[in-house]
Nucleic acid binder design. Structure first.
Lengths: 165, 165
DNA sequence: CGCTTCTTTCAGAAATGTGTGAAGTTAAGG
DNA sequence: CCTTAACTTCACACATTTCTGAAAGAAGCG
């Protein structure tokens, strides 16, 4: 008749459960729902890449929703868009080795915080308790920026080593 | 007439601008609006602590909103509640030296991720690309957990040194 | 022990966010 | 060129979240 129904169904359901749980985690961390679901689906896919239609069907959402979510994901560098040559069909791919960086979105993120804090320090001045308190925060973010840089380097080294061994 | 209008007004307006900018930053990082505004207001206050009424007036929100937001902030250890002895008035205080930890809310956060990822690895198995991909993610979070621990220690040392010198 | 002051709870209103359907745009293939 | 398959945009509807006002609940003070 049709394909091995139960197996495929079970597998699909199991995948879906994981995808939704993963997505929920991302949502909790601040990502909006649709991007989260799509990212989770991509990471759980065999090739690490899916087409718009596949995502639309698997997640049971409209192409419009996929479009919007993917735009966001591409913008924050969690996903890259590929064109299969000869077709207008696009595939969206998780950046296997880059998404760790993106997830910690250090660059813009930490800079923005530092800017805000610097303004606060200027406004209140270091001769006020508030000013000193905000200055501490500024220093914390400076510290974080430096440390996260070297942290990611260590991670890269760690990974390279694993692959090598 | 009344108090030095322009000075107080300007100062208040300037503080408000900073508070709202800071809050916006926190919102972007995933915190909801009211807790974010309250936290920012506390950090910008001279004593690092304000009463419910003060918050309510400064932020132009109802006592109910303050109550709910403060409950959340206390739960995630960003704020502590104090009672002024003899009054039912409560003051809410930012935890000057603890909120860095809280902001990175490492403990529960990283554990939850690891649990989710572990389930994914089990589900797909290390003989599938997805399984390996998710396992990489799991390792990344293990790595992060370890590193963030020592990072915060270094920060504590850094701070202690500043205060000492 | 009741009055008063402050905080909390709760139902509902207002604001915001999120996803859909339909129309619009772009580019491959005839 | 025209057709057609894909992706995107936009207005709107639905869902969720967030804040308020009112009422109830605690706790000092007379």
């Amino acid at each position: 008749m049709d394909e091995r129904r139960t197996d495929d169904g079970d597998e699909a359901a199991a995948v879906s459960r994981f995808v939704e749980r993963f997505a929920a985690q991302l949502v909790q961390a601040g990502m909006s729902r649709m991007p989260a679901r799509i990212f989770a689906a991509l990471l759980s896919s065999e090739q690490g890449a899916l087409t718009s239609v596949e995502l639309s069907e698997q997640l049971k959402v409209s192409p419009a929703a996929v479009s919007g979510a993917v735009r966001y994901l591409a913008q924050v560098n969690l996903v890259s868009r590929e064109r299969e040559p000869g077709s207008r069909r696009e595939r969206y791919r998780v950046q296997d080795d880059q998404w760790y960086d993106a997830l910690l979105e250090r660059d813009a993120f930490l800079r923005n915080w530092q800017t805000t804090m610097r303004e606060g320090v200027e406004q209140f001045g270091l001769d006020t308790p508030q000013g000193r308190r905000i200055n501490d925060t500024l220093e914390f973010f400076r510290f974080l920026e430096k440390e996260l840089g070297s942290l990611m380097q260590r991670w890269a080294a760690h990974r390279a080593e694993q692959l090598g061994g």
